[in-house]
Amino acid sequence: MSATTAPTSSAPAAETTGQEIHHDRNRWGQIRLYVGLAVIVVWGLAPAYWMVVTAFRDVGYTFDTSPWPTHVTLDNFRTAFDTSRGNHFGAALWHSIVIGIVTTAVAMLVGVFAAYAMSRLNFPGKFIILGVILGSSMFPGVALVTPLFQLFSNLGWLQGVNYQALIIPYISFALPLTIYTLTAFLAEMPWELEESARIDGCTPGQAFRKIMLPLAAPGLFTTAILVFIASWNEFLLASQFSTKYTQTVTVAIASFTGAQPHQEPYTAIMAAGTIVTVPLIIMVLVFQRWIVSGLTAGGVKG
């Protein structure tokens, strides 16, 4: 089972171009393969590369079309953090970090319980609950904004420092994702170990905490990264429920203003975008193997 979760899995020979059959066909296949691979790599990298190149380009050369870094400067990063034009990018970074960490921690805690129950226990109403969880992931966020807007404004959460106006909805929206990913991970674990622990007298809770949790660490970690990224990237609710004191990075970037009205400070925005994105990209690259198997969790089980 799960051979394909292993990132190194040899592609199960979709290599239909058998070496011994048609030599010409084989060569054509190779050319097509490498053209295709080039397209994929350019697709993934080119726009992101352009963002980074622009982030380091002098503002006077914003629309320089040279594909290489030219007029390199760090000024744009200074401008991005400059608060004199009413942009509070630095503060927004901090807000997003706080919101992301709290959301991730709570969603993981609550999600682990539910995922354990879903993958290991039988209880009445399980499949209805599963349906509710899945249904809420399909839910259009915008359908909730109106009632939540009224609720939160009555509670006075739409002014001042009220992180919970974002954190509570984020947790709720992250839970389906957390539970599904974790359930898929938990289902792949060697549960025989848990059974032996229980035979040795552990309660289900103890068996889970002491035996299974350490084994589940990679899965937990991947899920946590996915939840953090989801919270970090959210825009709709953040644009409605955050205040000056809780503004998140996505909102800050979307509403970034330049020196003059109607003059978009492109290079500073690209610098801000780079700051927001590069940590995620590094995280994704470092944990790439786990993330791909997390993203397609379950889908790859044989």
Partner: peptide
Amino acid sequence: ALVRAAILIPWAIPTAVTAKLFYFI
């Protein structure tokens, strides 16, 4: 590994940043 890393990048970029990036492009 390189190809898979490349393809994950668009996914990791926040949509708000993607929007601004394409606004510029």
